[in-house]
Amino acid sequence: MSKIWVLARKEINFYLNNPLGYIVAAIFAVFSNFLFMKDIFLRGNTSLRPFFDFIPWVLMIFIPALAMRIFSEEKRTQTIELLLSLPIEEKRIVMGKYFGTFVYSLIALALTLSIPITVNYLGRVSLAEVIVSYFGVICLIGLFLAISIWFSSMTKNQIVAFLASILVLFLTIAASGDFFAPILPRALLEIINIFTPLYHYNTFLKGIIDLRSLIYFFSVSLFFIYITVVNLKDRQ
């Protein structure tokens, strides 16, 4: 059996059998459903755009909450020494933990499918747009997770990992909006915007799978996974 899958399965089992996992997933699902459903009749249309617009902000909290323990807890309980004395490469450890948490995040995301199903019952939704938009959310999850795992590998303290991840994710989301408009020139803002996750995420919301956006998400996620591996090797 692949060692990456052994570790991934361990992580998935942890989340499925531990209050942290299912409480965080439940809060994510309930909160997402509530935020969308509370105004559905006021809006008077069957667009799912409001859901996909606010989901990055919800993921900004949800993903760090899941990821904060990945390496922080191992360092605190010293199981990191146990893990690193087993015959498994550091990169496979990181990949296994990343995929395990990623899969669990997708399970939690699946709980939001109640939204398009309900809306489709009330009106009509474009299946293609929903699929492509969810694909964008999945890319966002992958990126946020890679960043959060890196912060988790930097500290023994889960709360520090959690807060640092949220801060950075907040800045990356805010940078794509008008948050920095009062202090930065417009031209610079536009350049910064191209490097933000939301800029590329929004292409999916238009129903487009842009290769440049796929490359963006893949390469930035890979970068943070790589520096997590470097961090793990640098324990010495």
Partner: peptide, 17 residues
């Protein structure tokens, strides 16, 4: 590491398993 079995100090274990 395939040749070694190592029991670290304080015997860290995965308590959730």
């Amino acid at each position: 590491l395939n040749q070694i079995g190592y029991l670290p100090e304080n015997n860290p274990l995965y308590y959730d398993m």
